[in-house]
Structure formats: C-alpha cells, structure tokens
Design a binder for these strands. Structure first.
Lengths: 229, 229, 229, 229
DNA sequence: GATGAATGAGACTTCATTCAT
DNA sequence: AATGAATGAAGTCTCATTCAT
C-alpha cells in the first residue's frame, strides 16, 4: 500500500516544480469554489491542462489529490505565516497586527488554498481534518507563548488568563481569515463595522477594527494604533 | 417560475406539520453529515420514510429542499435563540453566559440544523448564503445594543468601541458554536484550553473558559464567574 | 447486505417475465460472445433495450447480473435436461441417446446460456464456478445410478466399474455439449470423424458417432443403433 | 501489415532466448489467471521486468502478444507431448497411460501455458482458436493410428470403430487435462470418483480411474492395471 | 533500442430528476 | 397526491497504446 502510494507520488514529484504547482493550483481552485464533492476530476484536469489519465498517474485517486492540496496548504501556511512570526520583535500589539497583515497577504496570494484549508472545519470534512489536527496544538502553543512573553514585559493588562487571551486573539485571526474568503463572514464583518454594501471594505479597515478591540487588553495607548485610511 | 415554486411550497405546507418536520429533519441530518453535494435524495427520502417521487411534489429540486432546511434553521435560531435574548434582564455578563448556554442547548437539540447553518459560512456555499445575509445586520445590531446598554450601566470598561466589543463577543459565540459542531474547532478549543484528548470537554467548561476572557472588559468581579465543575 | 441484494432482486422480479427474460437473454448473449470481462454494460443494455441506469435498479452490479444469468442457465438445465431424464424408461442406450438429443435441442434453443455455463470451466471463472459446484455431485450421482440400474438389468458388459463408466459417458456428454458451442471442439469432432470442412456436421451425425463408441460397453446389437442420415 | 508484424517479431527474436521466455512466461501467467480481457499490459510488463514501451517494440499489440503465447503453448505441446509419443513402444494400454502421465507432467511444468491453451476451447476465444485448428487434424490422426495399430495387434476388442474409440480416448485426455487446470473440472472428477474434498486427489489416482474405464475396450487383464496407491 | 509518462476512449457506477401508474 | 421504476448525463477510474526523451 505504501509502496503503491509512493509510486504515484514519485511520478508527480519528478515533474518540474512549475507543473506540479499548476496541477495543485488547479485542484485548489476547483475544491475552493465547489468543495470536495462538488468538484470534478475532469474540470481539474482542464484547468491544469493535463489529460484525465495523467492525473491518475500522479495521484491514486481524488482523495489523495485533495490531501496533496491540503499538504500544499499547510506548507504555504508554514512558509508564509508561521515561520515569519516565531519571534516577537517588538510589542505584542505590533506582532498581532503584523500577523493579521500577513494573513491578508497570503489570502490575496493564495486564496484558493486558504479557502480549502478554512473549509476543513466543515463538519463533513472530518475524514480529512483529522490528518491536520496536529497543527492546532502548535498554533495554540505559539499564541500562548506570545501572550505570556507580552505579559512578562507588562504589555498585557492584569487579571486575564494567558490561555483565555490567546484563544480570544486567535478567534480574531480565524474570523478575519474567514472574512477574507467567505462572503458570509465578510458580510458579518460589515454588519458589525456598520459599513454599507457600496463602500469598499479593505483588509486594512478590518485590521484596524480588530486592533481596536484587542487593544483594550493591552497597556497601550491609542496613538500607536493602526491608522484607518 | 415563482408560481411554480409556490405550487410546490403549497403542497408541502398542506402536509401535517409533523410530516413536514420529519422530512426537513431527515434532510438536515443528511446535509449535516455529508454536505450538500455529498447527500443523496434517495437517502433523504428513506430517512423521511417518503417516496422518491413525493419529495419532488414538495420541492422543485434538491436546491429548494436545501433552502427549506435553511429556512427551518433560521426559524429555530430565531425561536430558540434570538427571541429569548432580546432583553438583557440582568448584567451583560449574565446575558452573555445565558446566550452561550442557549447555544449549547440548541446545539444539543438540533445539531443537524445548526451544523447546516454553520456550514453556510463555507466558501462554496455562497450560492445559498446570500439569501440569509439579512440576518447578520440584525444579529450585529442586537449585540451592539446589548453592549451599548451595558456601557450605559457602567458595566463595560472605558476606552473600547461598542462595535468592536460587540464583534469580539460575537466571535466568541460563533467559534463556540462551531466547536459544538465540528471536530476541527473542538480540537482547536482543546488546544487552547490545554485539555488532553481523554478528558471530556463539556460545554460548561468551554463556557467558563470563554467567560474568563470576556470578563476582562467588564467591571465585574471574579466571584460572579461561572463555576467550573 | 442481504437486504440490499434483495432490494435489487425485488425490482427485477416485479418486472413482467417477458422483460426479465429479455434482459437475461441480452446479458447471456453478450457474456457468451465476449466473456465476462470482455462484455460491457452498455452493450447489454442496448441489446435489452433498457437504459443504463435501469440495469442498476435490477442488479447490484455486473457481477450480480452475471450470477443471475448463471442462475437462469442452471434453471434451463434443470427444466429442460435433468428433470426430463430422471427415469430411464427403456434401455440405457436409448437413455443416453435421448440425453444427447436433448443436449442438442437446448443448445439450439439457448445457445448463449449454455455457452456461458460451459465457460464456467475456464480457469479464470473460478470466482463464479464455486457457487455451482453443488450441481456436479448431483450430475455424477444421476449418471452413476443410471449405469447401476442398467447393470442390474444386464445391459452393461461385465468387468467395468459403474463409476468409471459413468465418468466415461459423462465425458462424451460434456464434449458433445462443447462441440455444439465452440468452434474449437467442433473442429476436434470433425477431425476424429474425418469430415471435411465443406460437409455439414449435424448433431445427428455426432450423436451417431458417439453412440458407436458407447455401444461397445453394452450388450446391445448394432441393428438398434441410431440411423445415420 | 505483414511487414510491420515481422518488424516486431524480429525485434523480439533478437532478444536472448532467456528474456524472450521470461516475457512469454509472464504473459502466460497473467492470461492464465485472469483471461485475455482481464489481463493488463502493465501487469505483464511488471512480471517480465520490462518497461511498458518495450513490450510494444516486441509485439504489435495485446492480441499479437497473446498469439505469441499460444505459439509457445503449441511448441511446448509438440516438444513435450506429441514428439514423445509418435511411436507406440509397447501396448496401447501402456501408451495411453504414458500419455496421461506426460500430460500430468507438463501440467506441472507449464501450468500457465497449458491453461491458456485449454482456454482456447472457450467460445469467446474463437478469434484466436481458428489459427490453431490445424493441430486437431494431426492430433486426431495420431490417436487414430495408435488405435488402428493396436487393433492389428489384437489389443482392441471387436466391434468398435477405430475413429470412435480414438475420439473416446482423446476425450479422456482432454478432460483429464482440464481437471489439472480448472477447479470446475477437478470437482467434476471428484464427484465421479466419490472422493471427499478433504482427501487429496493426486494425478495418479485420476489416471488409475481413467485407465479402469478404458481397459474395458482392450483385451487386457486386470492385473496389468496401473496400481492405485 | 528502451523507457515510462502521457493520452483519451471507454469501463462501471451513481444520482437528480421525470413519468407512467 | 403518491409511488417507485426509468432515464441518461456525468462521475471516478482504468488501460491499451503512443511518443518524447
């Protein structure tokens, strides 16, 4: 079984990186717009400009293709998001803002992958999400550390548990991310910000709005806040 | 087209309420566990104990059936959640806690519907979520009002925008809801709470954890907090 | 699983007998001419004049369809062959001749089914032939009985084991059957009978040829033999 | 077309004999176990340890490969079976027994080839069997001669046609061969011999059983029979 | 000559929808 | 109004064959 799996992976990995990415991109776009069950192999092959049979040379089946897309998702997250933020260089406030900006940036760069990844939370994706549950522990730990460090430095107000604050901040991250990808959460955001449909809602505005709420926990002054443009 | 649609709706609405609900429940369960594309009409009919053809007397097609389920979702939300909480009877802290408890309760009562509803946020559900965007304005407004009232009563600490705080609180609600329905968000919760897989994570514990983070904004004393059991 | 299987069978059995047979006939013809793996569902459906999907309402899959054809084969064999010959009315010689004639007749009537049945002996059909192995014991027993009775009546020459003789006779039956269905065995027959390709080889001639060899075992006189026409 | 075919054959025949046989063996094994339609080129190449493309340098297509296997079958039959038995060295009884033993031996040595060959009799193999029909005339002639010689020597009882007896004997050969290769015919054999499934049925026992039935035609005494072990 | 990736027709099967009863 | 058989397009996947290297 594992050998078999490798047989396919090898064929795929021998491809030029460019072509690999084209295929994964095509799959990610399909899965992002129609979901796993709604996406068809034929459609993906056409997007990737490869033959139907070729795909089955690269991946055992649709499921394995999807997992390959998820792996690429994770790789993107790690490369563009986590690795850049393992160290808090200045204040936690800045760190959070940077993190949000980074989320906005990778959502702009890889919307399809991020969408697929975000969709892992859907209840009928459990068969796939189990594979990636490890990551949560990491993510939780990272934010917890960030908060703890900040507390030591006196940046966090008294009387709040590090874990609870971490969770609260991560919730902002998650829903900010969702709002970049899903119309539903975008509208929810608008609703709270009281912004009309006609007015453009840039990610900068969203970030500023989030920072406004988070700043409360921190011993920071308003003037350092992110300027709303 | 609209007449046609009504024709179907009428046939459905002439059914005894009990049978209507049986059909919607069956559909909700299917959609919840397998998603829109993954669910089959045949499966739904079998769950509902009606014939394949009967369903097409009641609904124009799968899409309309799904929308009917979504309508029922909203109805449940309104009936069991929003209507119960239009007035803040005591402090905002209590109100929030009550709201979370209510969420936990209806998740226990109607897990399938809530799951379907929660999935509307999935990016590939946009074709359906548009119909329900109205609700957000309501929801946002309600929480905003709640916060504003609380602020007037001096329950909220200084220097925080009502809307930002409302958003922050609603984010807790949303992700609490998700954690009741999706394994993915459940695990995320555990990760932040640092709870081992073997230990049961009751909704009471989750609520207490959330309340811990929220209390910070409020001029409340710890002793009123939700008792962790 | 069994319920599921019944679900399909029921749908099929509700069909008018005529339509049932049309479908089985179509399948038998396809399987007979191209074998199990070489035959396609589409081809079968076209022969039977039903839609592709209909077939899957009647049978779980190609395998079950094939088994249904085999069942019909057996039914034909039992109805037209075995039931007619449970009693030896006159001499064993006549019985054998009658049996051969009967084989010729059902080969003319149901060539496809007989062909499918005969093919069960192919080594790559073992997955199916196991189901039908019971029949052999019957068949062997029946011929054994026939020979034993004949021996009692003094029709069989001395010094031959009933079982060995039964086997020898059954071999003639089998290869006579094969010669009606397969070009290969037909040619083999011709070769031994020394009949040119241009000359027609009727089943009567084959039977006479076989009877010639069998008569030796029996205390019969030549003049009673089957007349070669 | 013929030139083309030769082009392929030449390429194949230039290979070292060992490699040729490895390829044919691999193909024979595949065809024997899964039949012509059920066998895949990929599988055969893997068994033969050659590349997919190489096979198409040696053979025009799957069909020609199959024919090459059949040619090898015939070659084996001629080399190991026919050529050894062109002369009756002692009595016909011994000759037959030797022939049966030889069949058992080559079935043990080349089961795959023999199986493929035996399957030529399947009705859906007619497209291939035509090519090999020549052989039957030879085979028939050979056995006919054997019987005629034996008759001259007074080994055969009176009143039986040489051709009919030849056919009868050949039938024993054929079905003995089939019983070595197919479960179906093995079971049929057991049924007539009244041997339980648990008891091993060696080829020696089968041969003894067959000899018992054949001996009747011959002016032989029981004591010369094949010893049942 | 050899390789093995690529092709695409076609295989089996499912399923939303229609329709005769 | 209800049934459930029928439809056929479309889905996933396989495989004999071709072709660039």
């Amino acid at each position: 079984m594992l050998e078999e799996l490798n047989e396919f992976l090898n064929t795929f990995q021998k491809l030029p990186r460019e072509k690999q990415l084209k295929i994964l991109d095509a799959a990610a776009e399909a899965f992002a717009s129609k979901g796993y069950y709604g996406s068809g192999i034929k459609d993906i092959c056409e997007r990737a400009n490869i033959s139907n049979g070729a795909l089955y040379k690269y991946f055992l089946n649709k499921e394995e293709l999807f997992i390959a897309v998820l792996d690429r998702c994770q790789q993107i997250m790690v490369e563009y998001l986590y690795e850049k933020h393992t160290k808090i260089e200045s204040s936690i406030l800045n760190a959070i803002e940077e993190y949000l900006k980074e989320i906005a940036e990778i959502c702009g760069k890889f919307p399809a992958y991020l969408t697929v990844y975000a969709n892992l939370g859907s209840p009928n994706m459990e068969m796939f999400s189990e594979r990636f549950s490890e990551r949560f522990k990491e993510s939780g730990k990272y934010i917890y550390e960030m908060v703890r460090e900040a507390k030591k430095r006196g940046e966090v107000i008294e009387g709040i548990d590090e874990r609870a604050l971490g969770f609260l901040i991560d919730n902002q991250f998650i829903l900010f991310l969702y709002s970049m990808l899903s119309d539903y959460h975008e509208k929810r955001f608008r609703s709270f910000m009281v912004i009309e449909d006609e007015v453009e809602l840039t990610s900068e505005k969203k970030i500023a709005f989030i920072m406004d709420s988070i700043r409360v926990f921190l011993n920071n002054k308003k003037e350092e806040s992110y300027p709303v443009t």
